[in-house]
Design a binder for these strands. Structure first.
Lengths: 140, 140
DNA sequence: CACTTCAAGTTGTAACATACAACCATCGGG
DNA sequence: CCCGATGGTTGTATGTTACAACTTGAAGTG
């Protein structure tokens, strides 16, 4: 196995291991907002509102799954729907004020945990790690 | 926000985004072996056999969940149990020949996908990225 | 305009995954 | 020999997800 292949194998192993734990970690940190709900809210924040179909495409979920997730988030008062005047079928989803506040809280508590974990990394390493992750995720 | 905080924020965002997609990606790539089953088999391979309790601790799962997962994998003929002669309560889990072969296939197909995605990375970057991921996961 | 086709969302259904609690069996130490 | 701790299974409830069938509205075509 070449050096290159070994690196790829390591990346594979570590990413898998991370993915596997992510759900449980998220659930422990804030039981009120699952990993999926959290990412949906975050996406709404980033995009400043989007359609359910967009969420489904972006997160590789079935539209029925998104429909139910959104219904739950609406029940919690975190998102609201605004019918697109140009197309009555479309519901543009937006964060409510409460949704934005909750998202901010959860993001902050996650960040604290992450900061602790990365406490002994120096700034240059953090910067490069962040860059690699961004590059990896962009590559699709 | 300091440079350091910005890097941490990026890492948080990218890791979350990755985690969110991982399950669906895995499911598409090989419907026969979910992400969880895959990681359990991989762990057995790495460790050369271990207890259900170890799996639960490592993957932050309830022991009942692991118990059912293992039951499923046993039904599929991928793992076998050997009672520890030193402690009758303990079942040491091992990959069967079929389990090892299936795991190897899935690992290989995942690796191909990953290699494609990392095709335009140079070797030094791959090496550093792998190192950062290992360091990140080790930090707990 | 009527007809067809397509896109956005919802709902019915079934399969899993998961946690928690209760439980059983076994081990090890007083 | 009992008793607490450990490994594991089973009962139960909840949540996530996909697939399929359906509803509604949009858009194009004759």
């Amino acid at each position: 196995m070449s050096h290159r292949e070994e690196s790829v194998a390591t990346i594979q192993r570590e990413l898998t291991s991370f993915a596997r734990r992510a759900r449980a970690t998220a659930a422990q940190l804030h039981p009120e907002l699952s990993l999926v709900s959290f990412t949906l809210l975050a996406h709404l924040e980033d995009e400043g509102g989007c359609r359910a179909t967009d969420l489904a495409a972006h997160y590789l979920l079935d539209k029925s799954t998104v429909s139910r997730q959104i219904a739950g988030l609406e029940r919690l008062g975190f998102v609201e729907r605004r019918v697109d005047p140009a197309d009555q079928r479309v519901q543009v989803l937006h964060l409510t004020e409460l949704g934005a506040r909750t998202l901010a809280q959860v993001t902050a508590s996650r960040r604290v945990a992450l900061q602790e974990r990365l406490a002994d990394w120096d700034e240059a390493d953090l910067d490069r790690f962040a860059g690699y992750l961004r590059r990896y995720n962009a590559g699709r």
